[in-house]
Amino acid sequence: MIFGSPEAWGTAVYWWSIPLVLGDAIFPPIPSEMLVITGGALAAEGRINPWLLGAIAALCSWLGDVLVFQLFRRQLSSVLDRWGWGRRVHRGIHRALERAGRSSAYGAIIGARFLPGGRLACSAAAGIGDVTARGFSFCAAIGAVLWATWLVGLGYFTGSATRLPFWASSLIGVGVGLAVGAVLGLIITKRRGNRSPVVEPGTED
């Protein structure tokens, strides 16, 4: 596969988006955002259908969030704490929530996915907390649609505006997305007030 050739990507973008967007819910370093933005840039060249890509990305994002929510709702955190790597994951979630601060639970479910690591942290916190499954699913669906629309639209806009090769437009879109995420993270961090609702391993409830 020649990665710089749009013909080499084709419908493969649809298939790759499924495991990457799903996996991103559990392991944030997976570059699902880059793939979806690249898909948007390819759509600007008429290579793929942006609506289909957006629908797949939104559905997989929602499914991944619901999976994480249900796992932590069923006390996955206590299982993780049995191993050293699990305690590191648990502490990582805690630190991510500390950076984001405590805000409206439902608003955070929708908006936290735009911050680095925010999707996992918020879904885990909602599972540990008192958020209802119906409320979480509804807000996660709204957030997933907004997230997919933003990323596909960002790739499509940069591709249409720059007329550069799709991979160059994708890199520009990723840069813009990172900058917007950094600004949002800075704003939310400055507004944080209370301690994160997640209790670190080894501490009292």
Rank of each mutant, 00 (worst) to 15 (best):
D65I: 01
V68F: 05
F69D: 01
Q70P: 04
L71G: 04
R73P: 02
R73T: 01
R73E: 02
Q75C: 03
S78P: 00
L80D: 00
R82M: 03
R82L: 03
W83I: 07
W85E: 01
G86V: 02
R88M: 03
H90T: 05
R91I: 03
G92R: 02
G92S: 01
H94M: 00
R95G: 09
A96S: 03
A96C: 04
L97G: 03
A100H: 06
G101W: 02
G101R: 01
G101T: 06
G101D: 01
R102Q: 10
R102G: 12
S103N: 10
A108E: 03
I109L: 11
A112E: 06
G117Q: 12
G117Y: 07
G117T: 13
G117N: 10
G118I: 13
R119I: 10
R119E: 04
L120G: 08
L120N: 06
A121H: 07
C122D: 08
S123F: 06
A125H: 13
A125D: 06
G127D: 12
I128P: 04
G129T: 15
V131I: 15
T132A: 14
T132L: 13
F136T: 07
A140F: 01
I142C: 12
G143P: 08
L146T: 12
A148G: 14
W150A: 14
L154D: 02
T158D: 06
G159C: 10
A161P: 09
T162K: 15
R163D: 07
R163A: 06
W167Y: 11
S169D: 06
S170Q: 09
L171E: 08
I172N: 13
I172G: 14
G173Y: 05
G175V: 13
G175N: 09
